[in-house]
Amino acid sequence: MLLQSGPPIEPRLLGPAQIRDLAQRLGVRPTKTLGQNFVHDANTVRRIVADAGIGPDDVVLEVGPGLGSLTLALLTEARRVVTVEIDPVLADQLPRTIAEYAPDHAERVDVVTADAMTVTVADLPAAPTALVANLPYNVAVPVLLHLLAELPTLRTALVMVQMEVAERLAAGPGGRTYGIPSVKARYFGTVSRAGSVGRSVFWPVPKVESGLVRIERHPRVDRPSAERTTVFAVIDAAFGQRRKTLRAALAGWAGGPVEAERRLRAAGIDPTARGETLDIDDYLRLAAVEGSGPGPDHP
């Protein structure tokens, strides 16, 4: 008589004791250089996975899995989890942790030892549909923008970042915290806050609170990369001299203040406005205006 195997056993999650034990066994001391703060609270990782809205068809990209707290929780919902870890010691340990705490799900995890700042779609074993990650505080914005640019298959992103960064990413035009990260993130999709995370759920305990940011991607990502380069150049120029009017701030980009004003008026933008009053659609229109002067390559 053949015995039928039961359903897969759900992964066990890591708590404070397991996190510290793993770190001690590996001789791991979290470093500020790599922005390492490990989540040790099961309810927090469950909440992140629930808020991410991922399902059984999703391939999730996780950046900086660390000791595997969030990875284990992601396995309860996703079809596959692809992790990118820069620390070779942590990358080597992760498959062993998954085998111990989620043996029935071990084949659904891929570990890529690489720097998320340089990783491309060719480096990944599967095309991810969702990004869910506790991003290192010191490189959160450049990593997020790089991945959104490099991985057009990403439909959604839910990232945990420093609270100040979360506020900047989700800020709207005219606000005090609205700046380059806010506009560039909006190039890829709709950005919103998804709650806060207290310091006590991390080891070591950081000095700042954390926040969750959600990005729902829109069709704009299918446009050529040359457009993104031009749009981002306009955004950088507009905020590079934040106190100046756009006519003055964009003079270097356009090839002079007169040409900057012509382009602004052609895009339906007041030349006396400032960069923080414009939304991404304004920057898209401005970047699309054909120039009569030297343009963005002007020194």
Rank of each mutant, 00 (worst) to 15 (best):
L2E: 15
L3D: 15
G6D: 15
G6Q: 14
G6N: 14
G6I: 13
R12W: 15
R12S: 15
L14V: 13
R20I: 11
Q24K: 15
G27Q: 08
G27F: 11
R29E: 13
T31W: 01
K32S: 15
F38K: 12
D41E: 14
V49T: 05
I54V: 14
G55S: 15
V59N: 10
V59D: 02
E62S: 11
V63K: 09
V63G: 05
G64W: 09
P65G: 11
G66D: 06
G68N: 10
L70W: 07
L70C: 07
A78F: 07
R79I: 10
R79G: 15
R80P: 07
R80M: 12
E85V: 08
I86Y: 09
A91Q: 05
A91G: 12
A91N: 04
A91F: 04
L94G: 09
P95W: 02
R96V: 12
E100T: 15
A102P: 03
V111N: 04
V111C: 09
V112Q: 06
T113M: 06
A114E: 04
D123I: 03
P128I: 02
T129C: 06
A130Y: 00
A130T: 08
A130E: 02
A130I: 05
V132D: 03
Y137F: 14
N138S: 06
P142F: 01
L145D: 00
L145Y: 00
H146E: 00
H146N: 03
L148R: 01
T153A: 12
L154I: 06
Q162Y: 03
M163W: 14
E164Q: 11
L169M: 13
G172F: 05
P173M: 10
G179L: 02
S182A: 14
K184P: 00
R186Q: 13
Y187K: 00
F188K: 00
F188I: 05
G189N: 01
S192C: 07
S192M: 13
R193G: 08
A194D: 12
V197Y: 00
G198D: 09
S200D: 10
V201N: 01
V201D: 01
E209W: 04
E209Q: 12
G211D: 05
L212V: 01
I215Y: 00
I215Q: 00
P219T: 12
P219E: 14
R220H: 12
V221F: 02
D222W: 09
R223Q: 14
T230K: 13
A233E: 12
V234C: 13
T245W: 12
L250H: 03
G255E: 09
A260N: 05
A260G: 06
R263Y: 02
L264D: 03
R265Y: 03
A267I: 01
G268W: 02
I269Q: 04
D270L: 03
L284T: 11
L284Y: 08
G291W: 08
G293Y: 00
P294Q: 08
P296Q: 06
H298C: 09
